Amino acid sequence: MITRRILMASVAALGLAGAAFADGHAKTKVGFVYVGPVGDGGWTYEHDQGRLAVEEAFGDAVETVYVENVAEGPDSERVMTQMALDGADLIFTTSFGYMDPTINVAKKFPNVKFEHATGYKRADNVSTYSARFYEGRAVQGHIAGKMTKSNIIGYIASYPIPEVIRGINAAYLHAKAVNPDVEFKIIWAFTWFDPQKEADSAKALIEQGADVVLQHTDSTAPQAAAQAAGNVVTFGQASDMAEYAPFPRVSSIIDNWAPYYIARTKAVMDGTWESVDTWDGIPTGMVKIGEITDAVPADVKAEALAMVEAMRKGEYHPFTGPINKQDGSAWLAEGETASDGDLAGMSFYVEGLTGDIPN
């Protein structure tokens, strides 16, 4: 996998670019395809914040359009096609299940640039980008392992793809490291956004004894379910979900797409865009850790922040051996870190997790 770091430091200066591009140049049209509603409070909300940042950075030099609640599959291909026909110069497709539709539509519109989030298929006019969410999961796992009193941590998983499996493994490894008695109970919701299903999953995990619930789904419904239950810890997913702070939401993973969207839009505007594969995380700010509230003991908060700083400096990797696979076979030796290739294709649980990954 080729990783290209996007420099974030230049973002502030780009706000001056709008007037220059608007003078004598046609607007650059940028489209966004969303799997959920912009008001989901999570994944799609943060992507839309990135879209708004593009508008703010370039002003009249750009026009942005979006379609929300687009199902993965044929519907998304239809939406992308219409965006291209309507004159989009750049289209961001923001869910894993849009991968093949993006490739298909890109073949028909070779002059349109496409950016696909969390996938792995590229073309001359298709880039891929994702964030190292597992870095944030490691921090959450550490806090969860320290805060659970029942030693049962619930996890609402969306789809059994490497991105989600990486998150489960990272959270479990770091919870287990600080609490050897911890147990993970995982519910596969098979949805990115379904508040009722997410709430039901949270309630089921709480009924099974979980007093900490993590989620890889996009709505705030698990936060509300935990709040109603009482003494259950949660973490914001993709967005801060700070309306549930200081408790049950004690911290969050925040997906910060704005700098990337601004940089890639500028590349189209100035003719320097090329197909790349970007996978960034805490060091560049693409993954941010939301405020750790005072509901977390001070020493645990300090440990979590130290982990964040170590990852920011490149001094710590969440997947550092020794780590075995679920079946007991060796995966990483003492001190060995996982390669990007291994992480990108992760399809197994680590040792200690119970249950099977569904097909």
Rank of each mutant, 00 (worst) to 15 (best):
Asn151Phe: 09
Val178Ser: 02
Ala177Leu: 10
Ala210Met: 05
Ile165Glu: 01
Ala210Gly: 03
Glu207Tyr: 07
Gly209Met: 04
Ile153Thr: 04
Asn179Asp: 09
Glu163His: 12
Asp194Tyr: 04
Ala225Lys: 02
Ile168Tyr: 03
Ile152Gln: 14
Asp200Tyr: 05
Tyr155Ser: 02
Lys176Ser: 07
Tyr172Asp: 00
Arg166Ser: 01
Leu205Ala: 06
Asn169Glu: 09
Gln223His: 14
Asp200Lys: 12
Gln223Pro: 01
Asp200Met: 09
Ala189Asp: 11
Leu214Ser: 00
Val212Arg: 00
Lys176Thr: 05
Asn179Ala: 11
Glu207Asn: 15
Asp218Ser: 07
Gly167Arg: 06
Thr191Phe: 08
Val213Trp: 03
Ser219Lys: 05
Asp181Lys: 15
Gln215Gly: 07
Ile206Ala: 02
Pro222Asn: 11
Asp194Ala: 13
Pro222Asp: 09
Ile165Gly: 00
Ser158Phe: 02
Ala199Thr: 06
Gly145Trp: 02
Trp188Lys: 06
Trp188Ser: 05
Asn169Leu: 12
Lys203Thr: 15
Ile152Asn: 15
Thr217Ser: 11
Lys149Gly: 08
His174Glu: 11
Ile152Asp: 13
Asn169Met: 10
Asp181Glu: 15
Phe184Ser: 00
Phe184Tyr: 13
Ala170Gln: 03
Glu183Ser: 12
Trp188Cys: 09
Ile186Val: 15
Asp181Ile: 12
Val212His: 01
Gly209Val: 05
Thr217Asn: 10
Ile187Met: 07
Lys149Tyr: 07
Tyr172Ala: 00
Thr220Ser: 14
Glu198Phe: 05
Lys149Thr: 14
Asp181Trp: 10
Ala177Phe: 08
